[in-house]
């Protein structure tokens, strides 16, 4: 599998990462090496094999619809890098 710098740009954008030019060259080479190695899986014929996302057959784990008290707001906000008395603060994100 060939990995191009355009692909790395796209993946970096999706990942919200911004590698500099040098890192990008390195990442492209590394990813290509790793991804090419992963192509070994294509040797194995998996036609008709059901993808296994959950390893054990646990099913229907649910809780009842009963309210418990919420957390003290201060406890939730105290680790925020930017906040006011009641909310987390972020740079402008609202449209319109």
């Amino acid at each position: 599998m060939k990995i191009t710098e355009e692909m790395v740009d796209y993946i970096a954008l999706l990942s919200r990462l911004k590698p500099d030019a040098e890192e990008k060259v390195q990442m492209t080479a590394e990813l290509e090496k790793i991804v090419s190695y992963m192509d070994v899986l294509n040797i194995l014929d998996t036609d008709g094999v059901e993808p296994l996302s959950h390893v054990f057959p646990i099913r229907n784990v649910m809780r009842s619809d009963e309210v418990s008290s919420s957390f003290p707001r201060e406890e939730l906000l105290k680790n925020a890098p930017s906040r006011d008395d009641e909310a987390f603060l972020a740079p402008k994100a609202v449209e319109g």
Binding site: I11, M38, L41, N42, L44, T46, E50, P51
Partner: peptide
């Protein structure tokens, strides 16, 4: 990502089934 999910991620879940 779009276009690679089946070839890599889904394939890996299938191989995981084979390994199990």
């Amino acid at each position: 990502s779009a276009g690679y999910y089946d070839a890599y991620y889904k394939k890996a879940l299938q191989v995981k089934a084979v390994i199990k």
